[in-house]
Design a protein around this nucleic acid. Structure first.
Lengths: 144, 144
DNA sequence: ATCATTGCAAATGATTTGCATTCGC
DNA sequence: GCGAATGCAAATCATTTGCAATGAT
């Protein structure tokens, strides 16, 4: 699959050097569904022999720094997402699939103030994470 | 500190064998604030020399299985909580303190249905996790 | 040519596992 | 005494780090 112009543009606009590895990692995140590093690495094994896991870790970290992708910590593993706006996630406890919560999600409307008073003292809130855990439709069907 | 009658009762009621290590781990979780395994272990080092980390892992895992404590996955680490009812958490990104969200928390009123329709297919939802991340009052004061 | 990026291998941190010994019941 | 629980050490999994070689600009 050729790198999309969009990927190239995004990478370039961030000022990062364009390397085949970076392009590949970026497009993997776009193509896979909330992948973790090992999934990205496995995905690229055949198309990019010689690619190192360390490079995947590096790249993914740079992409996060540049604000091109987002991390979601799930089950002790970092997973990566191209969507940058806040949204909640659905996690399948069986197959570990992670999916974006649709906008009519019960938690989607929740707003969190930037400051929050707890026991008379102020917390500054920077972000919040909502994960709904359960069983996805596929796993529901295969193991009733 | 002597084991409280309550701890003993709780452990006994679950059918678990009462060992000094179990009692100690259970009371550590009660005494510390959302501790991770290493904090429990450090806490018990002096009072229980010879106690193994593996035992702490074992014990904590059994306590979760028996429904006596709850795990919260935070920053790639399991942390343990005696409160069993659903409640949200506040995480300090500076000192990594984890605190229960008070009941007037913006997310506290949120209810999540047991079944949830996504793209025409049904997810079964078992639980949900809400973590508000930011800076705690103490860290706010010490680093402005 | 310069300096960021890569690849490899060794290191770290959290957690798990195997197994012989110990101890609650 | 029996079987579950413990302690220890080695193993595993995710991630990080050090460093020499490579390659994008």
């Amino acid at each position: 699959m050729n790198p999309s112009v969009r990927s190239l543009d995004l990478l370039r606009s961030s000022g990062l050097r364009i390397t085949p590895q970076r392009l590949a990692v970026f497009e993997s995140i776009a193509g896979l569904d909330h992948p973790a590093v090992d999934e990205i690495y496995d995905h690229l094994r055949h198309s990019h022999p010689g690619m190192s896991v360390a490079t995947v870790y590096n790249t993914v970290e740079r992409l996060v720094q540049e604000g091109l992708v987002r991390v979601i910590m799930v089950e002790g593993k970092r997973r990566y997402d191209l969507r940058l706006d806040h949204h909640d996630h659905l996690l399948c406890q069986v197959c570990h699939r992670l999916e974006d919560c649709p906008d009519d999600c019960p938690s989607a409307g929740m707003t969190v103030p930037q400051e929050f008073l707890v026991k008379g003292q102020t917390w500054q809130i920077n972000q919040h994470t909502v994960i709904l855990e359960g069983v996805c439709p596929q796993c529901m069907n295969s193991q009733p």
